[in-house]
Design a protein around this nucleic acid. Structure first.
Lengths: 225, 225, 225, 225
DNA sequence: TATGAATGAGAATTCATTCAT
DNA sequence: GATGAATGAATTCTCATTCAT
């Protein structure tokens, strides 16, 4: 089973033009793509976690959904928590890719910032936050090692800070007037954007919010205010 | 045992003047104020949930911490989930009070908005989100009845929308220019503010963020941009 | 709330003529009939035991149904098991009365035997065996003291044996031919009659069976076979 | 542990000639006959249920007696009630076999009827009714699915009815004279026989009763009465 | 690698009984 | 006598994890 994986690995149709167009993840090359056991296991797990939450998904459920024996799970993941960590790592890797792609696109400042926000938050929303059990998936153990999402986040912040600096130099935005440095400005933007998920009722709703938050925040940074 | 309640019910020193001043909760009258069993149980539960999370706090733990027998928990709360709901209701009631107080204060527009945001989010942050197990406390069952937080939220939104309208009439802010109605503006503001919690490392950090988000967002609404 | 007792104590309309007519129990005189607490408790208990079985009826249920506090039950009955025993004693007393009445009636031999069987088994059937939880009511603890039903049974057997002896003397039945003594004949008859309850689907069904068993058994005892 | 199973599966010495001869059960083929886990569990359970009753036998007790872990019980039986149902099914299967064997024996009418009654009721008596907790074993949940004992009972009734019809044709018995059809005659006989269990003090006592009831009932059916 | 039967600590919940008022 | 809050032992059931095959 696993609509999850099929979607997560599906290439989106190419020629999208909006800032939100975001391609997805090329599956890592496998000798026999049909037997990427750990991948299949994670697919099944994601599906089930989203549907029933972490607590109410048993290792047995995952094994059944992945068509492997329970013991097999423990060959690839030392524990249920590590299996979850594996999920987080895969998610993180995919976000990294999407963010990188967004940054590489040739777009005006504001559009690019929105594209980046969408790459990061939209992805998470689609795969995690839109689940009725999102809170359990945020981190069921509160133990995700720093290296799971940390590096991606660092890189993102650095890149956005650079974008901001450029824009400041160009006189388009005025951080000082708002009492901010590039870093605090980025932090503020990301935090605010993160709030878009709050009680969002669907992806459309989420995106409208995200866009409004992004635009309003950037508006507050404009020069000559 | 129970710093939670002592803090939650402690009267804050009166004459605070900063926008962040937070009044608190008049305990409901009790026959024997020294033995508000359900209250003591909730105190113990909140403490433990914050420390160890919902899943890893057993009813036995709660009973021990509250110095009552396991069975006593079930006199006041039908199940572990209902106990959690009780916690949420108490939280909600306290937020409602604080928000109301913030709205009643005589402050300039921006300060009042920040005060309201702080009343709502700061309270939640202090009692829920600052826990390493925050995600589990958001709603372990994804089943909190609508009437727990809904009404408070509705009222808050309505009040903020009124504030905005007044400010629009006074020509101080310009929602149309930002493509917003009072309601979408409030939604955007609240959502953005909600993001302040994201990975905050402490209450100070949280507040700085919240303030920056609030100010930046309001800045984006100013007239004559 | 006690349909049980009202029925159990209700006087049946008088002039019934069939062998099956069986009057019931005059309530013991009480100073204040409205406050026969133990009686009301037993009424409630019987009701509930019949509906939900012994196991699934809690002392709290009984207390609620009897409109007394839980602690009150323990004033009149030392334990749940003793409460049940009280029920059994009341039942036994009522059977004793009905059997006595049946024996006192002026009826031909076969009719009288059937009337006695009905007094004993019909009563039990109506109040115990017709419940879906009969098996639990037969004796939830397997600990009913001998003196609860024993004496009634002894008396019944003795009386029936006398009836048989008389009938033998009159040459109407022939126990020797069937290899029986009066006592074994009575035991056989009672045991067989007892089987009438087996899977009976209602009181009518039960009575047809009981009658057929009685008649067929007595038929097997007829002289000149 | 487990005299239960050893007896229940023990082959009785072959050539028994009395009406009471009881053949037994060919154990289903097992990979490892020494570890029929569900069978061993049922053995332990039957032992304990007979000794202490259903309620007072905990799953833990059963697990200990069967030398398996508590969780193992739930591999084979979804719940305590289903475990009981398993017991009933095994019992039913064995009764079916014994009844079939009794019907296959070449015996005169009356002896065969007695043999059949003994096959059905004697077995139940030995394994269930002779327990001091029989009432709890009759059906602790009042929920045994119809397909557990129903089919066996149906088949038995049909076979006995056939026997009766044959005997009627041969002029040996006279159902009409007793106001019965073959089916009601069978029902009456079975019900009466069922009563043999009532307060039986041991297997001998039970059998005497059963035999007397059977003979007396059949005697009542004889032609030319 | 892969399996899946077996494990057993742990958790939530129930309820007969007690006892201070 | 009457109450009902409080108790805590007992019970059923779950599920992450192990390990012999």
């Amino acid at each position: 089973m696993g609509i999850a994986r099929s979607v997560m690995t599906a290439k989106k149709a190419a020629g999208a033009k909006s800032p939100r167009a975001k391609p997805a993840v090329p599956p890592p090359a496998l000798k026999n793509p049909a037997s990427d056991k750990p991948g299949l296991i994670l697919d099944a797990a994601l599906d089930l976690f989203r549907q029933h939450g972490y607590r109410r998904t048993s290792m047995e459920d995952i094994a059944n959904a992945a068509n492997v024996a329970k013991g097999t799970l423990y060959i690839y993941f030392k524990s249920k928590d590590e299996l979850f960590e594996g999920l987080a790592r895969r998610l993180s890797a995919q976000i990294a890719q999407d963010v990188k792609a967004a940054l590489a696109r040739k777009l005006p400042f504001e559009d690019k910032v929105l594209a980046v926000l969408d790459a990061k938050l939209g992805f998470v929303y689609r795969w995690v936050l839109s689940s009725p059990h999102a809170s359990e998936l945020t981190d069921p153990t509160s133990q995700l090692p720093d290296d799971v999402f940390g590096p991606v986040d660092q890189a993102l912040r650095a890149s956005l800070a650079d974008l901001f600096k450029t824009e400041v130099k160009a006189g388009k935005i005025d951080l000082k007037g708002a009492g901010l440095t590039p870093e605090t400005a980025v932090d503020t933007l990301l935090a605010a954007a993160h709030g878009a998920e709050m009680g969002a009722t669907g992806e459309e709703h989420f995106h409208e919010r995200l866009t409004r938050i992004g635009r309003l925040t950037l508006r507050g940074l404009r020069s000559g205010l």
